[in-house]
């Protein structure tokens, strides 16, 4: 039974308490498994957005596809599902995670541009390849970001 009226600890007890806190954070970081299905869902959203280039008409009359907003909403829903599946809402994810998220945005933009170029060249079928690349890159980078957030929690 725990004593609810704690007195000031000794130096050794205080050090042990601080060690326990580090051990708890490490235990959480070790116990959490990256939700691979939901990371792949992020990849699916990226692939869907890049594939939107196939229905665009590059040139003077180009109008950006509206799939971007839908993809953003779905990505936010997936992020919410990740929180609920794992049971942790991170306060900060660490520089590596933010780098991975920036890399997702930049690579998807690059792949979308390449896709528009392919469509303009009459190679619409090749958008399948850029979409697959977006899926693979985003799934991998989302996993990198999540593992980085867990490491950040361990080191805090």
């Amino acid at each position: 039974m725990e004593n609810d009226s704690p007195i000031r600890p000794s130096a050794r007890e205080a050090a042990a308490s601080l060690d326990d806190l580090a051990a708890d954070r490490a235990a959480v970081a070790d116990a959490v498994r990256v939700p691979r299905g939901l990371m792949a869902a992020f990849g699916g959203v990226a692939a869907y957005w890049v594939a939107g280039a196939a229905s665009a008409t590059p040139g003077v009359n180009y109008e950006p596809p509206t799939t971007g907003w839908l993809a953003l909403v779905v990505a936010l829903v997936i992020a919410h599902l990740v929180h609920r599946e794992v049971g942790i809402r991170f306060r900060t994810m660490g520089a590596k995670a933010y780098g991975a998220l920036a890399a997702i945005v930049l690579s998807c933009l690059a792949l979308f541009s390449v896709s528009l170029g392919l469509v303009a060249s009459g190679l619409t079928w090749a958008v399948v390849l850029t979409s697959l690349a977006a899926f693979a890159l985003t799934t991998w980078l989302a996993g990198v970001a999540y593992r980085s957030a867990l490491e950040q929690l361990r080191r805090a």
Binding site: S17, L21, G87, R89, F90, R91, Q152
Partner: peptide, 14 residues
Amino acid sequence: LRICGLLRRVDGMD
């Protein structure tokens, strides 16, 4: 103390 230690670096925990 351990509860607070776990919660300090997150916005929320189940």
